[in-house]
Structure formats: C-alpha cells, structure tokens
Design a protein around this nucleic acid. Structure first.
Lengths: 369, 369
DNA sequence: TTGTATGCGTTATCAT
DNA sequence: ATGATAACGCATACAA
C-alpha cells in the first residue's frame, strides 16, 4: 500500500513521521551511518507508509557520482551495436548503474553533441565508438577531467583511454588464408573503407607495403583489408588492386553496386571476402540477381555471423565477433575505473572465431580440405 | 582551449571571474533572465575560459525535470527492440533529452527493478514493454505519481496510460487469408503463446469462440493466433487445434522442436504461418534439416521481415512491422505528455504491411494468383 | 538590469 | 547513537 498522492515523499517527511531528525532518517534510508534497531525500524516503517523513494539526483549532487554510464553507439539498430549494448547491460544489471544511450550514426558532429549531453548529465564514465580516429578533442577533454573513457571497436590516435576491440587483422588474415588454401587466388574483398587520413586504397597499400602504417588506429574495415593483404603476402599470392571493392559509404545500395563491379568484371574473382554484415547481405542480393550460386560459382566468407548464415543452403562461412563479450569487457573496465583503478590505459583485443561452413569450394590442383 | 584542470567550473566560479553575481551568471548561462549585452559577453567569455559546462543534475533538482526518458525494453539485442530504440532516438535527438535504457528480458521481477531504478533517477517519462499484462502494480504506481507512461507493443489491462502497438489481429488475419486463398486448408501456426491468464490454447480458443476474449490486453502472439483463427472462421475453413504449435518459451531450440512436431506429423500442414522472427529462423533450420523445400513442400509466411527474407531463394512472404515508426510514435507521445498534454490515454495501433513473395505456392483447384 | 537570499533532497561534518 | 547545520550547483522570488 503506497504510491499515495502526487507529492513524493522525501527524507524530511519520513523523518517527521518517524519523529527523528533528517540526518538520522538519511542514515537509515541511505544505509551509511549508525542507527539503533529501534529507530531503524521506525524510520523504515514510516518510509514504507509514505512510499518513500530516494531521489538519486540529490544524492548525486552531493556525492559527485551519478551511477550512470554514458554510451555513444554508432547505430543502435545494427546487430553489432545491439550486441554490445546487451553485453554492457548484462554486466550493469544488478548494480544500480544506469545506461544513458546515444547514437552518433558514426558522424563526428553528432558524437560531439552526444558527448556534451552525457557530460552535462554527469555520467560517471563513457563508452564510445569513436567516429573519427584523429580529431577527437571532445574525448581528450573528457579524459582530462578524469572521467573514465572506454573506446569500443576502434581506438583514437593518441587518446589515453582504455579500449576494447577485436583482432581484425588476425581474423581477416586467417579466413583469407582459408580461401587461399582452398585454391583461390583471385579473392575479391568487399569493404566499407571510409575515412583514412592517409588517402585512398592505393595510398594505403603503398603505406602497408612500405611498412609505414600502424594497425592500431585504423577503422575495422581497413584493418580487415590489411589482414587480407597479409594473407596474400604470406602465401606469395600476388595482390591485385582491382579485387578490392571499396564501398565508400555504409549503405546497402552502394555495397550492391560494388559487388556488381566485382562480379561483372571479365576476370572476376572465384571467391569473395565480405568484411561486414551489411556487405554480406549485398553479396547475396547480387549473387541471386546475376543467377550465380554459392559455392559453385563463387566461394564466400563473411565477417560477422548473421543468423541466416546457419541455415542458408549451403551454410555460409563466417568470422564471428564476440559482441556480447566486447560489451561485457567494456562495462567491466568501466566499473573498475570508477572503483578507482589507476593503472595505464588498457587495450583489450578479443579474438573472433572462424566457422568454416559449406560456402567454400576447393578449386585448382592441390586443394586442401 | 578549455578542459582546464580536474575541478569543473561552476556558475560560482564563472560569476567570480566575470565579476558579477551568481544570479546574473546563471541568467546568461541558463538563458532565462534579463542581462545586458556587456555583461552577457563578459560572462560568456569567462565561461569559455574556464570550460564551464552546466551541471544538469543541479538544474534538475530545482526544476523537477531531468530531461531524461526511461526505456524498459524486452531484449535490446532483438531486431524488434533495436528498431524501436532507433525510432525513439530519432525523435529525441536534437532535443536535450537523454534515454536511460534498461532491459527486462520480459521478466516481471527485472522489469520492476528497472522501473524502480528509473523512477529513482527521476526520469520525466517511461516507455515500457510490459512483461505482465495483469499484474503491474509498479506501473500503476508510476502513473499515479503523474509521470507519463507509454506502453509499447502490448497493453496492460486497466492501466490508464498511452500505448503504441501494431494491429496484430488484422495483420495475421490478412496474411492467413492469403494462404487460404491460395488453396491452403491445413496451415500450421508457430507461436510463442506464453502467459495467458485464461489458461492454455484450448481455453483460449474456447474463449474466442465464445466471444469472451478481449483483443486488447493480449500478448502479440496470442493476438496473432486470434487473427489466424478469424481468417479460418471468415473462410469457413475448419480450425484444427493440432495445427497450433505452441512454443511456450522464447528460445530457438524450443521453436525448432515445435516445428518438428508440426512437420513430422502424419497429416502435416501444407503451409506455416510463423508469428515471430525467432520462430521463422527455426522453421528454416528444420525445413533444411528434413530436406524439404519452400514453397514446393511447404508454403511459408512470416511475421517480421528479416533481411534474409529478401534474398532467400525464393524470397519469403512477410508481415513487416513499422518498428521505427512505433518508436517514433512512442517518443512523440512522451514529449507531448511532458509538455503537459492532458487528455485521455491514447492507444495508437499502427498497421503493418504484408509483402507477398515467392514462398507461397498455389495449391488445389480454385487457387487465385 | 542586477544582486540577495532561499530552496531543491540529499550526504557529510560536526557537535552532543 | 543522534541531531543541528552546512554543503552540492543551480534556479527563482523578490528587493534594489
């Protein structure tokens, strides 16, 4: 029996009803000081009778802690971010932390706005998927105030903050090697490849070949291209620039267009490595459209294991990112930092799994199983 | 040039630097009172120099508004809730409202906990997908305090609060009719069908036949069963209880088991209506497992249009819920209520689309296109 | 137009 | 163990 009228009960009203001071009422309700059995009972009873709910705002104002974690996701609707969020929530649930969620659409200006809002709302920490790996003054500012920041999925150049990501290079290198070992020498790679401050794909390959590129502060799709390149280099298979389909935008239409370019070319690839869930759907659309069949006409390996890849005929080989674990790792890091952990920024790189399924056809002479 | 040291600037420090009172500084920084050009400039300059950021906590404590909307989702990771969230954010972005997100996993106790947290954090409104349509004291309590509540996807019996949902009955009735008109008279329905206070499927059908069931406060899967029943009734096709595959839990494994029961029965259905995305995947898994083919061996219609349904061979017919629009509608309602809109609770039912694709085979004699 | 004084609901620091 | 009282950072009524 509570809820009462419209006016919410405060510590003051509870104290009055219980016949104690607000200080005493605060101690028992907040559970932070001394109090006698008798008083404790009386206060709790009064609180119950009035339907008292603590006002965390007031508490936060004085403690300086809001018990709230700000999250800046790229696109909540994508399975990747949804999975991250789920992982974060799994860790946070049970604590009395809340998640303040914002969406950047991978655009810097929106991210800046989002961070500003979160900071003004006094979040205790920030989990962010940075939109720009070079210009990030807003994030440096947050770090400078002492508010813990955990980067997710990618890391800003020179930002002294924790990070949780996946080892894209190793994963891509591994699954490209699978294709090569199955006899494929012309493997198309379909990748977003936006925003690299060093220039375009050719510049990137030059930089990579010249050894002057740091793997760390690269967007995932560039890292995956890098892994693809290394697998070729490892196996002594020549790298053909024309097999790199750069989508250049994060849109299904653009991806389909890029796939058409790849598959309609005179010496088209015998396999495709699709570096992202959105890209993978695009591959399927175009493959159907052209009337090709996987793996007879085209072998396929995808980054991100979407549900349909399991029951597609044939099932599609995929790199599965541990999205929930990434979210959990980020949340744990955040909680540790809030608890005062003071060591150097940590970069945690989780290892994706590769699941080989029926979408890879062995071709040529010495094809291994 | 800001950020400064660890101490955050306050109105007081800005006022001191600008040589004005805190009230004056507050007026220009908060933009709510009179101030002269000259003072305004000086204060803003000081604020900039100190890297002043308003503390919304303090503001909220006094205004009584946090500019925060609490959201209780079922499972953030599902495309449905992710889509809702995206819609909500689309509306909220640009305003200085924040979204405080929690996850109930469709369990009442977790929902109660979540709501408690949100209320203590003083959210200005609540958007919630209720886990229980009958026992919801926590929601009644919130409504009683005057905090706007918008139910999403389903509506609690007797709760005086807005709601945004989809017209499940009409949609299911429509797509079941499509199957019937294509000559299917044995249509299996795969549905979660948990938690109906009236009992099990037989009781439900009895109640439906007897006209004693209210469509409103039913979980979506029951409403979809209802639409399926009505389509049969409309067409004079006998309703066969054995064609109702009740999954009873929200799990892929359970769904697959239910599909097997349907497809391995001696007089198995010629078509299946799958009432949910998770169920649809289960259908595909089992269909492949058994070696059947859609639509030759089995026609298929699904509630929820997942990405793979477009490029599956053949493409799968689907009911597409306007998830983003639902989220947007809920968020708009919330903002209106916060602005003081005081009329009766509104129930907004959006109409899903049906997209007929190649997964329906016309059978029997008078099959229509 | 500006400044003074109070209060929002808590926690924290002292006394007692 | 308890109570008076001062914060926290801001907004607001009112006086100047």
């Amino acid at each position: 029996m509570r809820g009462k009228r419209s006016q919410r009960a405060t510590i003051t009203s509870v104290a009055r009803l219980a016949g104690v001071s607000t200080a005493t009422a605060g101690r028992v309700l907040g559970g932070y000081g001394y109090s006698s059995q008798e008083v404790r009972a009386r206060v709790k009873e009064s609180a119950e009778a009035l339907g008292y709910r603590p006002n965390r705002l007031a508490r936060s104002l004085i403690t300086g802690k809001t018990k709230t974690i700000g999250v800046v996701a790229g696109d909540i609707q994508s399975p990747f971010y949804a999975g991250l969020l789920r992982g974060i929530d799994d860790i946070v649930r049970g604590t009395d932390f809340g998640i303040l969620l914002t969406n950047s659409d991978e655009q810097l200006d929106r991210e800046v706005e989002a961070v500003r809002l979160l900071v003004e709302k006094q979040v205790d920490a920030l989990i962010v998927a940075p939109s720009d790996l070079v210009v990030a003054g807003h994030l440096h500012d947050v770090v400078a105030t002492g508010c813990p920041v955990v980067q997710i999925d990618r890391v800003v150049k020179g930002l002294r903050a924790d990070a949780v990501m996946v080892d894209n290079v190793t994963a891509s290198r591994g699954c490209t090697r699978e294709l090569i070992q199955s006899g494929h020498h012309r493997i198309g790679i379909l990748a977003e490849l936006e925003r690299w401050e060093g220039g375009d794909v050719d510049d990137f390959i030059d930089a990579v070949t010249g050894g002057s590129v740091s793997q760390t502060s690269l967007f995932p799709s560039w890292q995956r291209l890098f892994g693809y390149w290394r697998a070729h280099s490892d196996a002594g298979v020549p790298f053909d620039r024309s097999l790199v389909a750069r989508v250049g935008a994060y849109s299904g239409d653009a991806a389909e267009e890029a796939v058409r370019g790849l598959l309609e070319s005179p010496d088209r690839p015998t396999a495709i490595f699709s570096t992202d869930g959105l890209m993978s759907s695009a591959v399927m659309v175009v493959v159907n459209e052209i009337g090709m069949s996987v793996p007879d006409d085209l072998s396929l390996v995808c980054f991100d294991d979407l549900d349909w890849m399991t029951f597609h005929q044939p099932p599609i080989s995929a790199v599965v990112q541990p999205v929930n674990e990434m979210g959990k790792a980020a949340a744990k890091l955040v909680l540790e930092r809030i608890d005062g952990l003071q060591d150097e920024p940590r970069h945690i790189a989780l290892a994706p799994d590769f699941i080989r399924r029926g979408s890879i056809l062995a071709v040529g002479d010495g094809a291994s199983a």
